[in-house]
Design a protein around this nucleic acid. Sequence first.
DNA 1: ATACAGACAAACATGAATGTATGTAACGCC
DNA 2: GGCGTTACATACATTCATGTTTGTCTGTAT
Lengths: 241, 241
Amino acid sequence: MRRSKEDSEQTRAAILDAAERMFCEKGYAAATVELISRAAGLTRGAFYWHFRDKADVLAALHARTFLPQEKILTGVIASDTPDPLDCLFLAAAEALRSFEVNEGEQRIFRIMSDLTIGQDGREAVARIHAEMRALIRTVMQRAEANGTLNPRITVAEAELYITVTIGGLLAEWLRSDKCFPLALSGERLLRHLMTMLRTDQGAAPRARQCDSPRPPGPDPNSVLDIRCARAPKTKQALPQR
Amino acid sequence: MRRSKEDSEQTRAAILDAAERMFCEKGYAAATVELISRAAGLTRGAFYWHFRDKADVLAALHARTFLPQEKILTGVIASDTPDPLDCLFLAAAEALRSFEVNEGEQRIFRIMSDLTIGQDGREAVARIHAEMRALIRTVMQRAEANGTLNPRITVAEAELYITVTIGGLLAEWLRSDKCFPLALSGERLLRHLMTMLRTDQGAAPRARQCDSPRPPGPDPNSVLDIRCARAPKTKQALPQR
DNA sequence: ATACAGACAAACATGAATGTATGTAACGCC
DNA sequence: GGCGTTACATACATTCATGTTTGTCTGTAT
């Protein structure tokens, strides 16, 4: 039995971990509070001490995973690079690498595509997704203003293509039970995509200077380490009694 | 009250329709038998007359939707065309058009990504998906043997790229609440993909005959101006029963 | 040492979903 | 025009998850 303050935080984290696993395995609706608690080596008493109900853990899970990533991604876009498309490519490749090794991210991705997570949960997911699309769109707008974007491709189109490709990669990788190297294959596909977004492929084969002009400045990868992005506890549902 | 034989089939179909809608809205686990029955304008008695339990309707739903589609797709591949990639492109474009107008397919797609559908349901989905990938792979092997596939791209890679792109398109279209023209945008993206699969884009700009062997009909791009592509949300008005 | 609050476990009450059993009206058949 | 069967509706029993309450042990402050 754990009774000290820090042990309590440990218990809370254990419940979050267990909930993440159970939500991912059984789905949100089918993951019982009893199941989660037992998976954490506890009883429902502990669960209801730390969380108000199942929706509360989901929100906590969401915050624990996405809040740090959001900050990092918005940091990526802040960098004012001369080659926005290449910057986006590097960020996406790094995101794939991170996803490939981080089982927590994988579980959250699965959980958040669950239909049973309820209205507020869905809204939270939609918000995150809209932010990511807005970020990509901003990059594309810069590329357009920059002249690096293929003039025959709309900003909206380019934004869509990137979104579709990355989302499709993650989903297919998980569904296929990780039967291909996500980062490697994804990087190749994305590189092709980026090339297409740059050059005019339709009729006029203009001067190609596609993915060579990377500035020899500080490696953008150094900023992009999303590995092990775990925030300390945030919210606490005060027990009533 | 319906008592004749054909009326019985009609109620069975009504239950299937209702289940499809409820599974899609609430998710599999949260869609109660009571809810489904009431949505069909019936009671649970009718439900348990026609189906053993909830898993049974899911299986029936699965069969009703995928069995016909499988036949069509395998028919597509049966045709021995000199240009497999173009054949695949046409089939994919047709699939996108069908998906865009067929709400049943859309619902099934959502339902089958639900985590709570249970082990056998997931296996069924995996089977379908594996078959589709095998089909695409066959086409790619033909293209490779044919010489139309870019020699710098593996068959497995090409198969993956197509799968990822189509899956990503469908998922993103549904998630974004259909805020872009699926068939049009998808067709453009797929066309780019196919071009990439044909020509050697990496370094050696060999003789490009990429997307030229297209019959001199109307320019496909003329139809495809999606600049500022935002479609009005087509909300459905589902008739009761 | 004692008292109090924090951190849980265990028991309880409630509601909801499930499956089954029973009732019943219409259909098809001779 | 009785009769068995079909196609449901209704009623019931049971299981099961949830949320709450109560009990209990343990750190910690005084």
